[in-house]
C-alpha cells in the first residue's frame, strides 16, 4: 500500500513540477538513456514516477508526513531561478496535498527543491 502511494505521489509531484514555466526537465539520475532525452529535446521524455525522474518521496524522518525532493533543470526565459524554484515548491506541495486529500489522507508535506542545472541560450546553439 505504501509502495503504491509513493508511486502516486512521485507521479503527482513530477507532473506538477514539469508544468511550472521555466522548468526544462527533471534531473535524471545516472541513466544515460534518460539523460540523452534531456540533452536532445529538453522535454518531458523522462518516465514519470521512477527513480530516474528526479523526484524523491519519503516519509518524513521527524514525525508524520511526507518529504518530497525535486531535482530539476531550469531554462530561464526571463525568469529568476529563485522564482521558478518557489513556484515548483508551492505547486508541488499543493498538488501532493491535494492528492493525499483525495486519498482521504491529511498529512504534512514538506518540499525541497534543488536546481541541478541551467539551460542557457548557448546550450542550444
Amino acid at each position: 500500500m505504501t509502495v503504491d502511494r509513493t508511486t502516486t505521489l512521485l507521479d503527482t509531484a513530477a507532473e506538477a513540477a514539469l508544468a511550472v514555466p521555466g522548468v526544462a526537465a527533471l534531473q535524471p539520475r545516472r541513466s544515460p538513456r534518460t539523460a540523452a532525452a534531456v540533452a536532445s529535446t529538453g522535454t518531458d521524455a523522462t518516465p514519470k514516477g521512477t527513480r530516474e525522474s528526479g523526484i524523491r518521496a519519503d516519509r518524513s524522518p521527524d514525525g508524520p508526513g511526507w518529504r518530497i525532493e525535486v531535482r530539476c533543470i531550469l531554462s530561464f526565459e526571463g525568469r529568476r531561478a529563485l522564482e521558478i524554484a518557489q513556484n515548483v515548491h508551492d505547486r508541488v506541495r499543493a498538488a501532493v496535498i491535494s492528492r493525499l486529500a483525495a486519498l482521504d489522507a491529511v498529512e504534512r508535506v514538506t518540499v525541497e527543491v534543488t536546481v541541478t542545472g541551467v539551460v542557457t541560450r548557448y546550450d542550444l546553439t
Binding site: 541560450r121 548557448y122 546553439t125
Partner: peptide, 10 residues
C-alpha cells in the same frame, strides 16, 4: 542581463 543571442561565448 538577459541571456540574449549574440556573440557565441561557448
Amino acid at each position: 542581463v538577459a541571456l540574449s543571442p549574440g556573440r557565441n561565448l561557448g
